[in-house]
Amino acid sequence: MLGTGDSLLEVGGLTSHYGRIQALKGLDLAVREGELVALVGANGAGKTTLLRTLSGVQPASGGRVTFAGEDITHERADRRVKRGIVQVPEGRQVFGPLSVEDNLRLGGYTRPRAESDAGLERVYAMFPALKERRRQAAGTLSGGQQQMLAMGRALMAKPRLLLLDEPSMGLAPRLVEEIFATVRSLKQAHTTIFLVDQNARAALSVADRGYVLETGRIVLAGTGSELLGNELVKAAYLGL
């Protein structure tokens, strides 16, 4: 089921280290065009490290990452953004002192100006709350609004593969629902998404397929519903 030639993203034997600590211990996974793939795993399993390695802000110590058929294992982070690998990082990471609109414009840093103007309108249509606060400093937004800004900023880069790291973390249930509704609508618009979330039930429910990561290794893979029905997943991640 892995490595079917038509995958947009293919990861093989990927390892990554923090000094002597090995955080990724040889991962294999694939994401096909248009798919929504979820990655679930406990705190410290290596989910963020995987996404950071895919974005090139954390070096791979071994293995291979292929995007649209090209080896990008050791490519610079900004080049990967130009290719369309765009990440919404854990903890939102908005540019606090800069305005909402400047944050979004920076999201479109790799795109031509005219495209950026159109992208801005699309993001504002999607998140009207951001439009109302376009001149406000991003740091003054609420947690939910900052998450929307982080998502909007990523969309400005025209992602071919959107990496979402814990988009619902620390948000009230109503906002969590809103974030997942956004993820669903992005999926309907055929955005390819790799989603990491603490909320395993919600993540696996929206996903076509999923992987379970434990201490740097993929221990389970399957369709979203397969994983939701899996006894191990139920016990460890769904609290059943």
Partner: peptide, 24 residues
């Protein structure tokens, strides 16, 4: 200018700037 803002953004959050495609 976007280049100037990218410099400010890099000073506030180099990780996020990289994820926006800024060559830090």
């Amino acid at each position: 200018t976007l280049t100037g803002k990218a410099m400010l953004a890099t000073s506030h959050n180099p990780l996020a700037a990289q994820l926006c495609g800024v060559n830090v």
